[in-house]
Design a protein around this nucleic acid. Sequence first.
DNA 1: GTGCACTATTCTCTTAATGTCAATAGATAG
DNA 2: CTATCTATTGACATTAAGAGAATAGTGCAC
Lengths: 127, 127
Amino acid sequence: MPRRGRGWAMRAGSRGEEIHSPLVVSLLEPTLLVLLKEQPGHGYSLLSELNALDMTTIHPSVVYRTLREMETLEWIESDWDTDQTQGPPRRTYRLTAQGEEALRYWTQELEKTNLIIDKLFAKIQKG
Amino acid sequence: MPRRGRGWAMRAGSRGEEIHSPLVVSLLEPTLLVLLKEQPGHGYSLLSELNALDMTTIHPSVVYRTLREMETLEWIESDWDTDQTQGPPRRTYRLTAQGEEALRYWTQELEKTNLIIDKLFAKIQKG
DNA sequence: GTGCACTATTCTCTTAATGTCAATAGATAG
DNA sequence: CTATCTATTGACATTAAGAGAATAGTGCAC
């Protein structure tokens, strides 16, 4: 029952719950871009790749929805894969040129974010 | 007219607009904790401190609202300051013990976030 | 052959957070 | 006396996220 938002830290910390901070979710979009740049993939496989990146608390339906929205933006494209699945057909996504462009902007934003976080750490350690 | 969310990267990049990624906003809460740990302050002064940290696109009312919510959580407390203002009375906030506790959890989360971003950079540079 | 676990995706409803802007008002300089 | 800067609040609209039900194919054990 992940519930995000204001006051996350205490709720997550005091009880060892599966709540994630809003930060994790806001990394989802660029993370999917990066993963799909590495290689095409479908929702279910991306879910386990997210797990490998310690983004374990994101709800599957959020990932699927995000992929659909990214396809609407034409950052990614997909085809149905009916053969070679271990279950029902899967939708395999790949990055488009526009998606690569979006990833470039996102990369800059991630750099900026790292800088801000580093400044915060500096302030924390100072005190 | 900052509009966040899905597709931020292209909207922000293609036109040089004042749109921020969802990442920036999700740093607001821990940033306010850090700034108030450094020293007590009021909303208006915190706004310029956020500017100094390159978090320029966050709307003032969002900052004020966040402060009020953090006070409800008892992470911070406030008093009205009627003297020594350069305008109307200001509400001066300071960190509570619970706020320090929250900051500790947030610090861990920021470390985790930095790690994830670094992993993403590694993947980006590899490709 | 049927029941179960795993794979795989979509849809919908609810709740929470953000965006935006108007309103209010004290202080100060010209 | 009015424009600008300081300072905060409140309300409303919009967007995103959380959660779970529904659907369905595959493969294995019994």
